[in-house]
Simulated assay, not measured.
Amino acid sequence: MRPFDEDAMSVASGFSLAEREAVYHAIMTRRDVRSQFLPEPLPDDVVERLLTAAHHAPSVGFMQPWNFILVKSPTVRARIRDAFAKANEEAALMFEGERRQAYRSLKLEGITEAPLGICVTCDPTRSGSVVLGRTHNPRMDSYSTVCAIQNLWLAARAEGVGIGWVSIFHEADLKTILGIPEHIEVVAWLCAGFVDRLYDQPELSVKGWRQRLPLEELVFHDGWGRSER
């Protein structure tokens, strides 16, 4: 094993005030975009920067289990939209009464409106059967892939690019449409494109579906359910 090289380390200094504020601004103003997409295509250099940000996400055991399928074809995106519509109607029937009506009033995707779709996948076999850090939790590869998605999402916000995560699918349908091997996990379909505006608050909050929980109700100390005294 190559000895640890201290010269390869850099100083872990904090960001400047402006840099720090920019990071938090991206986090606080990130939105799940459904209906504000502009039709103009994303430049290749912008897409490359977003994917580079995703590829620099943390991953357990440095396994980097992600792949990104870029889908520009209107025909393919139309098939994806049909797969969503089927699953979305099934989802609507899981709610009852006014909740079902409210669900059906929500716009939950921009698959054909966004100029680019990104299918993010996870390959659990990439680092073999035994992976450092995944030995006792086999889902760590999926969690790592979600970190890549968050990196991409925040970079997109900084670039003025809207991202919408569509999760209402049967995974088998996406695998069939995109030719994804059986052992690969589909983690997300992301709609990506420039937007003309963003909601000041999450859209589901603005439309009354659900509100943000108070942080103080979610923080425990030294054990589950223990509030700070």
Rank of each mutant, 00 (worst) to 15 (best):
G97L: 03
I111L: 00
P115H: 04
A91G: 00
R79M: 07
R99T: 11
L116W: 07
I118H: 06
I111G: 03
D82C: 09
K86F: 12
E90P: 12
K107I: 15
S105H: 09
M140R: 15
V76M: 14
R126N: 07
V76Q: 12
G128Y: 03
R104Y: 08
A54W: 00
G61K: 06
K72N: 10
P138K: 09
L70I: 09
P39S: 08
R104C: 14
P115A: 03
T125F: 01
Y143K: 04
H56K: 05
C119Q: 03
R100K: 13
E113N: 10
D44V: 02
V46S: 11
K107G: 15
T112R: 13
V71S: 02
R134W: 12
I118P: 00
G97D: 02
A91K: 05
A92F: 01
L93E: 15
E109N: 14
D82V: 13
P115R: 00
A92K: 02
F37V: 13
W66C: 03
A78L: 12
A85L: 14
D141R: 09
L70Q: 12
L132R: 15
A91L: 11
L106F: 02
E48I: 05
D123H: 02
L93G: 13
R104K: 15
T52F: 01
A91S: 11
V76R: 12
G97A: 04
Y143D: 06
L106K: 08
I80D: 03
P39V: 00
D141M: 09
L106S: 06
R77A: 05
L116I: 15
T135I: 15
R104A: 12
F84Q: 11
D141H: 14
A102K: 07
D123C: 02
P74I: 13
T125Q: 00
P74S: 11
V60N: 01
A57H: 08
E40R: 15
E48Y: 07
